[in-house]
Design a protein around this nucleic acid. Structure first.
Lengths: 149, 149
DNA sequence: TCATATTCTATTATCATAGTAGGCTATATA
DNA sequence: TATATAGCCTACTATGATAATAGAATATGA
């Protein structure tokens, strides 16, 4: 049930970019090198990950001197489910309960397959959290945390 | 976020064994070959899986003629979380939120790590389902299903 | 003693993961 | 316009996990 490094790094990078919005919600342009340094992610690996997220429409970039990456949409409109699916594929533990990549499984009758019923619940539980948590939610939660503890 | 074939086959086999309890809850001894056939699982692969589950204390076996596997405990006392952990390892998407196999992650401060907060929720959601679903629950749910639909 | 069944270890093919390498293209600025 | 900076893109590789397969050894009932 694990998240790959690819997925983890991608999430960390996106959360990091969302945290860099200033008070006016202006979207700063951050070079890969800087994200790599602050998040401790191998730079060439991060390049690939950010490029993938860009091609999927979650990031935009500016090339050349003074360039870098920035969020393609406000943090309220990007959720963690999107990011994980782009980098790691379906959230579902087994394909026969996947919404985005359904495939039939080997069991004789899917409608009465006990494993499938439970795994559908698991998929829905994961999706409910990740699809309903935006980058803005994460930022807000982190900012709130020190005062709660 | 996926379940391996190993984990899937193990769950199917255990659910299958639980379904074979008769009205008196007597625990029949089922040879690997039979489970392999009914569940469409490669027999030599299933051998390894059942042996692992036996060594972990969830199954018992009888060797020789008339032998096979049977549940070590009543289906009400075996939950899916145990099975998955034995075959696939921790339920947590990342190690730093694992209860059974915690490892520190690379982030500077775990207490204020946004990714960690969300992934802890995901871990708990998965664990709440799998640790609270017994083999008996699965059997009961399947038996109830046709009448609901 | 034979057929059946589990036990146990080794081996293997394939794929995913987690990178690394290097050349190419675009852009600001000196 | 040269240069440094920064993203774009493709290829490659090492490692380990996954999903088996193979075969011999051991136990047991008839």
């Amino acid at each position: 049930m694990r998240l790959s490094k690819r997925g983890e790094y991608g999430l960390r990078a996106m959360i990091s970019l969302a945290n860099m919005l200033d008070a006016n919600q202006q979207n700063p342009i951050i070079p890969i090198k800087e994200i790599s340094r602050t998040e401790n992610i191998p730079i060439k690996f991060l390049e690939q990950i950010l490029l993938t997220l860009k091609n999927a429409g979650l990031l935009q970039s500016k090339m050349g001197f003074g360039g870098g990456y920035y969020l393609a949409k406000p943090p309220t409109e990007i959720n963690l489910g999107q990011i994980v699916r782009i980098l790691d594929g379906p959230l579902a533990p087994i394909r026969c309960v996947s919404q985005m990549a359904y495939e039939p499984c080997a069991c004789p009758n899917e409608a009465t397959c006990g494993l499938r019923m439970v795994m559908r619940d698991v998929r829905n539980a994961i999706a409910n959290i990740l699809d309903n948590t935006t980058l803005a939610d994460v930022t807000e939660r982190v900012n709130r945390t020190p005062f709660e503890v």
